[in-house]
């Protein structure tokens, strides 16, 4: 049997993870809140998002005062902090905004390997990134609370959007 929908979901989650990774790099260079958070992580710290059992994965590295996106792969990757989606379907629901991060944790759909304090910091960074990426109403569904979006942040958001494809 050829389960075409799995193939579609696999490429979708890989694409969205790549988008998140790129956005993480951009947002962490322009947004003060994320930069401050990232500052608390050790240099060279590698954060990984991966889908069990065998990928795809996305990797990012803390470098200086921001994150550097290291790309996606079709393998299961390891790092200092690994956010593991337990299965493809869960990853798809979460990464397409059908299931919020905190509900995903509540529903045991992700499992985390590594230091919890650093996981909390990384999650807060990703929350800000999601607020940048998603239009208001969707961000409200995905996040526990609305991120304040004063004018200067709106402008930075525009900046992130304009440079994201590159």
């Amino acid at each position: 049997m050829n389960y075409g929908s799995n193939k579609f979901k696999r490429s979708t989650v890989k694409f969205v993870m790549g988008l998140l990774g790129k956005a993480l790099e951009k947002v962490s260079t322009v947004d003060e809140e994320v930069r401050n958070e990232a500052g608390a992580l050790p240099d060279g710290f590698i954060a990984v998002m991966t889908i069990l059992p065998n990928g795809p994965s996305m990797r990012a590295k803390k470098e200086g005062d921001h994150f550097k996106y290291l790309g996606t792969s079709n393998l299961r990757e390891d790092g200092d902090l690994v956010v593991m989606f337990k299965n493809l379907e869960s990853a798809f629901m979460i990464l397409t905004g059908q299931l919020s991060t905190h509900r995903a944790y509540a529903q045991h759909r992700v499992s985390v390997k590594g230091d919890i304090v650093k996981a909390m910091i990384f999650t807060r960074c990703l929350n800000v990134v999601q607020a940048y990426l998603f239009p208001g109403p969707l961000a409200n569904l995905v996040l526990k609370r609305k991120l304040p979006m004063p004018l200067n942040r709106q402008l930075k958001r525009l900046q992130v959007f304009l440079t994201l494809p590159f």
């Binding site: 905190h102 944790y105 509540a106 919890i116 909390m120 910091i121 609370r145």
Partner: peptide, 13 residues
């Protein structure tokens, strides 16, 4: 407090 894992499971942020 903000870095404590239990916070993830609190209903209100």
């Amino acid at each position: 407090t903000l870095n404590d894992g239990a916070l993830m499971f609190n209903p209100r942020d």
